[in-house]
């Protein structure tokens, strides 16, 4: 109150002209500080986006939309959408299903938390190619995994976990789990622990506390984690080629775009597929984030009023 009064009286004393120049100077500073980021976004995102969009409507043969109509009329091309969704959605949902309870369990662990988080974060630093390389030898017919199973006499024939969709799914899980987990852990740790205690005092058991209090408050974090994991897994490329069946069930949409652009050298068709890819991602994110805001949007704790 007293502060408001003080600032308003000082503001009144400043002449309007000086106030204008001061505001201009403030804005200039803001613009200058923003410009590096702005230039980066413009040159690396906005310009390529519109360049690709324009290119996609300028096909080598046919009318303006012929790239798009070719993609959707060709069953093999069209199937890439389903192939990719069948990788991205299960991988993302699996990561969430494991990370939510794990992050919840670890919300108050003080000792050993850094070690555990560290272990989970390591895959992030590896990169998909390295993970794929490791998996190829680990899960190979004569690799450690199958040799161990044979030794324990669990199986007679080697289990095939690579060169199919399972292999790609495993690698996506390894690569994306840390992101999902860390985002959720940050969110859960930010929730006021007194909320759970309050629920407990009101008669809520462990499941009720999770279900009625913590889970709803984790929704924004879950949505964010879903969005990041989905976008990353939807753009899967190296592991789909190395660990999957790039000619069959793991022929993902990114691969279709790459083949159009760099095997058939049809940049226009490649751009069109990339635009379709982006449109699907935007649509899925819109559904998730829209659903999130219908559930709950607000702070995870109430400060003093």
């Amino acid at each position: 109150m007293a502060n408001d009064l003080l600032t308003s009286t000082t503001a009144m004393r400043v002449a309007p002209r000086r106030q204008f120049t001061r505001r201009l100077r403030n804005n200039l500073t803001t613009i200058c500080l923003l410009s590096p980021a702005l230039i980066l976004v413009l040159t690396l995102f906005i310009y390529p986006l519109f360049y690709g969009l324009r290119l996609s409507f300028d096909p080598q043969t046919g009318g303006m939309f012929s790239n798009y109509s070719t993609f959707f009329s060709d069953a093999r091309e069209r199937a890439t959408i389903g192939n990719t969704l069948r990788l991205a959605l299960p991988a993302t949902l699996f990561n969430l299903a494991v990370a939510i309870p794990l992050a919840y369990r670890m919300r108050r662990v003080a000792r050993g938390r850094r070690l555990i988080t560290g272990l989970f974060v390591i895959p992030m630093t590896l990169g998909t190619v390295l993970i794929a390389q490791g998996m190829l030898s680990f899960f190979a017919p004569r690799g450690w995994f199958n040799k161990t199973l044979e030794l324990l006499q669990i199986t007679d024939d080697p289990i095939r976990l690579v060169h199919n969709r399972t292999g790609v799914l495993i690698s996506l899980t390894i690569a994306e789990f840390p992101v999902v987990f860390l985002i959720l852990l940050g969110f859960v740790s930010g929730i006021d622990p007194n909320l759970e205690r309050a629920a407990q005092m009101l008669g809520a058991g462990a499941w009720q506390r999770f279900r009625r209090i913590m889970l709803p408050l984790m929704v924004p974090g879950i949505a964010t984690a879903f969005a990041l994991s989905f976008v990353a897994t939807f753009a899967v490329f190296p592991s789909a080629v190395m660990l999957g069946q790039p000619a069959g069930e793991t022929r993902v949409i990114a691969l279709a775009a790459w083949q159009a652009a760099y095997e058939r050298f049809d940049y226009s068709a490649g751009s069109a597929i990339a635009i379709i890819m982006a449109a699907i991602e935007v649509a899925v994110l819109a559904i998730v984030l829209g659903g999130r805001s219908r559930l709950y949007r607000g702070p995870s704790s109430v400060g003093k009023g």
Binding site: N194, P216, V302
Partner: peptide, 14 residues
């Protein structure tokens, strides 16, 4: 079946 009032109120924000 005890009631508790917390220093930061701990109202469920959602």
């Amino acid at each position: 079946r005890f009631g508790m009032v917390f220093q930061n109120y701990a109202l469920f924000p959602h």
